[in-house]
Design a protein around this nucleic acid. Structure first.
Length: 831
RNA sequence: GGGCGAGUGGCGGAAUGGUAUACGCUAUGGACUUAAAAUCCAUUGCCGCAAGGCUUGAGGGUUCGAGUCCCUCCUCGCCCACCA
């Protein structure tokens, strides 16, 4: 027996080349029968993949390989989410042009994925920063624009005054710029939005259909959409349009003693036009708007406000109440104005105390009557309506319904919903993204670029300066254009699209990546989607998945797609942690796979990554434990080598075998393991326990093999041959290179990935004897070998005859027998 | 503040309400070796010489039987957060 480690150095490149030659993962999508679309979230091409990234692709590869062996026609594509800020920031710092660095990174990552034995249908590779792809991202924009789902408005953006640029939310860390740590302020800019809020209800409702998504992702999306139901109420103002507010607690309306509007409210300017303290109000508003979002919404931030000089009428009490502006009211939620009920809302309570506004109790605590003057906090629970005119005495729930009915009848209010979900801000004042296909003509206004003029090409010769606007502004050949309507001069939109737009439809492009006349072939797409299994990080639980669902719904409504949810099943894998932290270059705790691959081979790294723990959970990486996986693979290698050296038969002809006791034990182990691993692969992906039980199988095989393989009987050799074959199947998805090598060692000529996954033999699982656990009062007191067909009477007699059991009965009568067949007996005796 | 998870040996982690600690790592002892590495064998939750007792974050409950179900609490992680 050789003591050397197995030759992974030669095995791995050999089979990688073989798979490519065999076109193992090139999928014929014209065949839809048994289709299985296995998708991993396409990566952003950063400079180097670490073992944390690796987990995602390895899991995807395991699923694709397993499903293939199960006979599915598997589609497993890959592409690159190649636009984005890091490449542009590097260029600003004086690095390579984003296109150059991105394409170089893609080449590196491609090499790495191949090295890991991760197989894709490379003919379908898509790269979002190339014109043949972003042409269709622009096309999607045009479709949304046509439908009125893309619009432009002034909105606040995160602004770093030092870098002179707009920052994405993700670039704002603790209220400061991630690059220079300058506090971020809000700046108002004209920006493009997608009207995702039009789809809020459907995005919410259809979550119910996604039963094969992790519950926690569905909950996160539900909370993100954040639907509240309530009533919109008009508060009349003298000589003006009424001011509308939204409330979820219309039962408290009799206690609305003032009203507050957001500082950004569009009607504020005209309402205060004739206020004596107009200037004071304006400077207050300006001060609040200068604060960044974090500052303004931080809990420590004091509630501040100012009286507008105007009053509105509470439509239920008929009383005039003052109208205020305050920093705690958000323009984007509801109507941007709220009725303030200090007695029953904590925020209003604090504000009222501070500015000495009246507090009136209108909901009574049924357990303990409330008194406004003695309140130390708002009573926000439901209760019984008081001081509420005709609604006195009603419980809150009923009061809400009755008051809403009354308002609807009198047309002063109506039932309505409000959502936390905001429209999707898609414009970025950045270079490295898909240009928004819009033209501005002085005569004709805002016009979409005609479809036949797509793509709007991103010019490559630009200078990277942090000016706060896209560098495209300084490229006259780009900016100057001809108006498609009047043929006069027009300007191009210089903002580019958020990269989340690129990634919200890439899974459609994989089906017909070379289409030049349309974004995808609807016929193939409609047969192959929804994606059967989507795999990715939980960090995308909200934005990417919500945006993709939205875009698919829009394309569905436009009749391009027959389905309206993109991802049937979703699996979110956990992060790999090192030294208690997420792996990242800046923290310096990155485990690069290269050194490990050199020492142990890639199959070991794959195996360890899968064995480390349940794939949906975070896991701590331990370099030393990797050796255990390596040891195991070497053990498998030596075992199968020894077996083949012992002259094991080339084929398993089990029908000729009558196993002896030892053989039966082995065969039972083989088939229970096959059953268990198959179950672990289906449903949730329990790779860690699948591998653990495969290790147990190998231990059992080694036991059967014994010290000297030459002493094996012919029957034992046949049984070990069957065991080896099944073992190689079980290992194949996890360690494909070694599995192929062992498969050919067993005499097979075809790839194991073209062999069908075996079925376990139920008869092998049958036993003649089992170990019975005997408990007395719930405590284990004995274990007996019992034959399977034993009758209950015989069993009881046998148990009572055991001295180990009698000792604990102590002569007492057995009150009750609890019998779990084939497993356990509990004797209940008097205390 | 709201929502969602999770707490099991020295470590990663296993356990359809039915033998807690599978599998692996670490550690210790032994075999092989001139020696080391590799490999193989044994031990490895705690207390105890043993018989036995104790043990799944803490405390209660349901049950013949609870890591698992229910209640209260503690700690940690993640997401959201002045959303009317």
């Amino acid at each position: 027996m050789t003591e050397e480690t197995y030759p992974y150095q030669t095995i791995e490149p050999k089979w990688q080349a073989f798979w490519e030659k065999e076109r193992l993962f090139e999928t014929d999508t014209s065949r839809t029968e048994g289709k299985y679309y296995c998708l991993v979230m396409f990566p952003y091409p950063s400079s180097m993949l670490h073992v944390g990234h690796g987990r995602n692709y390895i899991i995807g590869d395991v699923v694709a390989r397993y499903k293939r062996m199960k006979g599915f026609n598997v589609l497993s594509p890959i592409g690159w989410d190649a636009f984005g800020l890091p490449a542009e920031n590097a260029a600003i710092k004086g690095g390579l042009h984003p296109k150059k660095s991105t394409l170089a990174n893609i080449a590196t990552m491609k090499r790495q994925l191949r090295q890991w034995g991760v197989c894709y249908d490379w003919r379908r590779e898509v790269t979002s920063c190339l014109p043949d792809y972003y042409k269709w991202t622009q096309w999607i924009f045009l479709k949304l624009f046509e439908k009125g789902l893309a619009y432009k408005k002034r909105a606040a953006a995160n602004w770093c005054s030092s870098c002179q640029t707009v920052l994405a939310n993700e670039q704002v860390v603790n209220g400061a710029c991630e690059r220079c740590e300058t506090p971020v302020i809000q700046k108002f800019l004209e920006q493009w939005f997608f009207k995702i809020t039009d789809y809020a209800d459907r995005l919410l409702l259809d979550l119910e259909k996604l039963t094969d998504w992790p519950e926690r992702v569905r909950i996160m999306q539900r909370n993100w959409i954040g639907k509240s139901t309530g009533v919109e109420i008009d508060f009349p103002i003298k000589e003006e349009e009424p001011l509308r507010c939204f409330t979820t607690r219309v039962d408290t309306i009799y206690g609305a003693t003032y009203m507050v509007m957001a500082p950004e409210h569009p009607r504020l300017e005209s309402l205060i036009a004739r206020s004596p303290n107009r200037q004071e109000i304006e400077s207050f508003v300006e001060r609040v708007l200068r604060q960044n979002k974090e500052e303004r919404s931080a809990l420590e931030t004091k509630k501040e406000g100012i009286f507008t000089g105007r009053t509105v009428t509470n439509p239920m009490t008929g009383k005039e109440i003052p109208l205020w502006v305050a920093n705690y009211v958000l323009l984007e939620y509801g109507t941007g104005a709220v009725m303030a009920v200090p007695a029953h809302d904590q925020r209003d309570f604090e504000f009222a105390k501070q500015y000495r506004l009246p507090i009136e109790v209108v909901i009574d605590n049924p357990r303990e009557p409330l008194e406004a003057s003695r309140l130390e906090a708002a009573y926000i629970e439901e209760g019984i309506l008081v001081h509420s005119g005709p609604f006195n005495g009603l419980p809150s729930r009923e009061g809400m319904e009755k008051i809403a009915d009354d308002m609807e009848k009198r047309k002063i209010g109506r039932r309505a919903s409000a959502y936390r979900l905001r429209d999707w801000l898609i414009s970025r004042q950045r270079y490295w993204g898909a240009p928004i296909p819009i033209l501005y003509c002085d005569r004709c206004g805002i016009l979409p670029v005609p479809e036949k003029e797509l793509p709007v090409l991103l010019p490559e010769e630009v200078s990277f300066k942090p000016t706060g606007e896209s560098p495209l502004k300084d490229v006259p050949e780009f900016v100057n254009a001809v108006c498609p309507r009047c043929r006069g001069r027009a300007r191009r939109e210089i903002d580019t699209m958020d990269t989340f737009v690129d990634s919200s439809w890439y899974f459609l492009r994989y089906l017909s990546p070379k289409e030049s006349k349309r974004p995808f072939d609807p016929e193939v797409v409609n047969r192959w989607l929804p994606v059967d299994q989507y795999i990715g990080g939980v960090e995308h639980a909200i934005l990417h998945l919500l945006y993709s669902r939205f875009i698919v719904k829009v394309l569905h409504d436009l009749k391009y797609l027959s389905f309206d949810e993109p991802f049937e099943r979703l699996f979110t894998q956990g992060m790999i942690i090192k030294d208690g932290m997420k792996m990242s270059k800046s923290k310096g705790n990155v485990v690069s796979p290269d050194e490990l691959i050199e020492r142990f081979g890639v199959d070991t790294v794959r195996l360890y990554t899968l064995f480390i723990g349940p794939p949906e959970k975070d896991a701590e990486w331990n370099d030393r434990a990797v050796e255990g996986s390596f040891r195991f693979l070497n053990r498998v290698w030596r075992l199968l080598k020894a077996l083949s050296a012992s002259g094991a038969p080339k084929e398993s002809a089990l029908e000729r075998v009558v196993p002896d006791e030892k053989g039966k034990v082995l065969r039972r182990k083989v088939h229970t393991t096959l059953k268990k691993v198959t179950e672990d692969m289906e449903g949730s992906f329990r790779f860690n326990t699948a591998i653990a039980s495969t290790m147990e199988l190998v231990n059992e095989m080694a036991r059967t093999l014994g010290e000297d393989p030459r002493t094996l009987s012919k029957n034992e050799k046949l049984l070990l041959r069957e065991a080896s074959e099944i073992l190689v199947y079980l290992l194949a998805p996890f360690v494909p290179h070694l599995a192929e090598e062992l498969w050919s060692l067993l005499g097979h000529k075809e790839s194991i990935f073209r062999a069908p996954w075996p079925e376990y033999d139920p008869s092998a699982l049958e036993t003649e004897e089992f170990t019975l656990v005997v408990q007395v009062n719930g405590k284990v007191r004995a274990k007996l070998q019992v034959s399977a067909g034993v009758s209950e009477d015989e069993l009881k007699k046998k148990i009572l005859g055991e001295s180990a059991v009698q000792k604990w009965l102590n002569g007492k009568r057995v009150k009750q027998w609890i019998i779990v067949p084939q497993k356990l007996v509990n004797l209940v005796v008097q205390g």
